[in-house]
């Protein structure tokens, strides 16, 4: 395996337009935008369906339906329809992240302990208080796992943006392939994989920070030890 491209300092020049840092930045830009737009669309829908139980059919089936859409085909369709640019790429990537977020928001809400919600209502919470003070915090672990798998998928898939002429780490793959520079392809593959792992670690930390320890069982080991 030839790691020369990856370890060539010239390719890590922060200001170079085709350098790895710039490609990472562009790549992360696509990822962040797709996740943001996808969350804005999918989260309220998933929460609504989960909270009311209406339209569960959509939530259950959107996961598999979304997965079955070939992203490359969708991307090329969008580019052919709308012309080259950021918009068709974002549409294709957003379509990719919506199903896992929607499904997990729904699943997180549906698997809640009904007794707790009953208790919340019984204590006099208003519907929106029940939703935001009880249901959403309790659904967070499931929700976050859906968000994390969406993030992983979109990090890997954003490479296809290069196939329609955009930037991002896919450039290393497509351009390397075009000139038979496998060292460059390898560099692209490694950087994307590392980026995916780092992003997942970061999201794991975020999850730790926003999810109540009472739900994760992190404190249970401690208390169990205390009683015995």
């Amino acid at each position: 395996m030839n790691l020369s491209y990856l370890f060539d300092a010239a390719h890590w020049d922060l200001s170079a337009p085709g350098g790895i840092p710039q490609l990472i930045l562009a790549h992360l830009g696509y990822v962040a935008l797709a996740l943001l737009i996808g969350t804005i669309i999918a989260l309220p829908v998933g929460l609504f369906i989960g909270h009311t139980g209406r339209g569960s059919f959509i939530a259950i089936n959107s996961g598999n339906a979304g997965r079955s859409l070939p992203t490359l085909g969708l991307l090329m369709l969008m580019v052919t329809l709308l012309g080259l640019g950021l918009t068709p790429v974002l549409i294709a990537l957003t379509v990719l992240v919506i199903p896992p977020i929607l499904t997990s928001a729904y699943a997180g809400m549906r698997t809640l302990d009904r007794g707790v919600i009953d208790a919340a209502k019984g204590m006099g919470m208003r519907p929106w208080q029940v939703l935001f003070k009880v249901e959403v915090p309790m659904a967070l672990p499931v929700l976050m796992s859906g968000f994390r798998s969406a993030a992983l998928q979109v990090v890997a898939t954003a490479t296809v943006a290069a196939a329609v002429g955009l930037s991002g780490l896919g450039r290393l793959l497509i351009d390397g392939l075009a000139v038979n520079d496998y060292s460059r392809v390898l560099a692209g593959a490694i950087v994307v994989a590392v980026l995916a792992v780092l992003l997942d670690l970061f999201l794991a930390l975020v999850q730790r920070w926003i999810v109540s320890p009472g739900l994760t069982g992190r404190d249970q080991t401690r208390s169990r030890r205390a009683t015995t």
Partner: peptide, 19 residues
Amino acid sequence: CGVLYSIPSLALFVFLPVL
């Protein structure tokens, strides 16, 4: 498994012949 799954398919397709 998580790391393997996060390797972009394009990269794997291109790189496997070398391997």
